[in-house]
Every structure is written in C-alpha cells, then in structure tokens.
Design a protein around this nucleic acid. Sequence first.
DNA 1: TTCATATATCGAGATATGTCAATATATTTG
DNA 2: CAAATATATTGACATATCTCGATATATGAA
Lengths: 79, 79
Amino acid sequence: MEWLKEPEKHFPPHETLKHFNDGVCVTYIQEKAGLSQSTISIYLTNMEKCGLLISTRHGKWSYLKRNEETIKQFTDFIT
Amino acid sequence: MEWLKEPEKHFPPHETLKHFNDGVCVTYIQEKAGLSQSTISIYLTNMEKCGLLISTRHGKWSYLKRNEETIKQFTDFIT
DNA sequence: TTCATATATCGAGATATGTCAATATATTTG
DNA sequence: CAAATATATTGACATATCTCGATATATGAA
C-alpha cells in the first residue's frame, strides 16, 4: 500500500505502458516484495476483493493501484 | 477499544469505584464481550503489552483504559 | 488464616494465515 | 498454432491465532 502511493518512486517504468495510471504490474510488486509469485498473486487478488486495490488488465499484465475511496473508509473507521 | 471510549455508556458503574478514571474492570469487559475469562484476560494483557491499553490495579480489580497516546500513533501510521 | 472473589497462566484443540512449489490459464508473438 | 511470458489456482505444510476449561495466584473480608 505504501509503495503504491508513489509508484514512480518505488518501481521501474514498465516496458510497455509508459505511465502508472493503473498502477504497477504483479511481477514488479512480487520482485520487490521478495515473496513467491503465487503468494503475491493471492495477496493482490484478496486485497482487490477486499476493495483495497483496483486491478486493470492490459494485455498479459495485471496492473494494481490503490482504491483510495475504500482505503479512506477504512482509515476513517480505524481513526 | 470502542466501548472504552465512553465507558459510562457501555458499562455499569462499579460497586467499589464510583468513577471511570482508570477505565473498566476485567469482569465487566469479559461479560460484555461474551468470551471466557481466560480469553479476555489474555487479550487485555496483550493489548496492554502492545501499549493500546493502560492497566491499573485497585484492590482485587484490574481496571483498563485506553492509551490514547499510542492509539494515536497507530491511527496516524495507518492513515 | 481461611474463604470468596478477581485476575492470570497453562495446556490444548480448532481454525486461520503465511508461504511455497507445481500446475493451470491467459495472452501476445513468431 | 506453438512457444514464451504473465498471472491465477491448487495442494500442502508450518506457524499463528482464537478460544476454552482447568488451575494457579492475588487480594480483601470474615
């Protein structure tokens, strides 16, 4: 969640997509997290189901970005 | 944590102590939570160790109240 | 000091979570 | 379509968490 606040500061630019409008692809997150591909895939899928992330497919890549609306609801609740 | 924000609204006054300055005794929390005595005791002890609660002994009772300072640090971090 | 009450600790079983390797599926490219 | 790459799903095991009953400890009262 922290990394995805400022993707350009934490991830390399993607070879295909030149922007971070839809976030970062699974592989980049996986490599940075240092966990296995399957683990990260499950985590990201779950976080999307929870509403914390938004997933967008571009070709063979899935891009993940923060779902600020739900995140705010959550932080409001915690606060 | 929610209940302890306004103890007087969620718990009966204590037979001995007439105020809520140090929070609420374990038994009251246990009854309201509907979990066993041992479970609640462990939870409250852990929450105190985490810094979320402050425990004060008065005679044979332990009173628990929120540790607002640490709670704020936590909510700030989450936010 | 003994009893009653409040709380803490221990031991245990069920369920959940963290994590992986292996395999399956999707998608682009030659 | 076949190969290559990206992602998803499955099955499994280790560890953590939830929760309890039983027991131990602390403390005030008789």
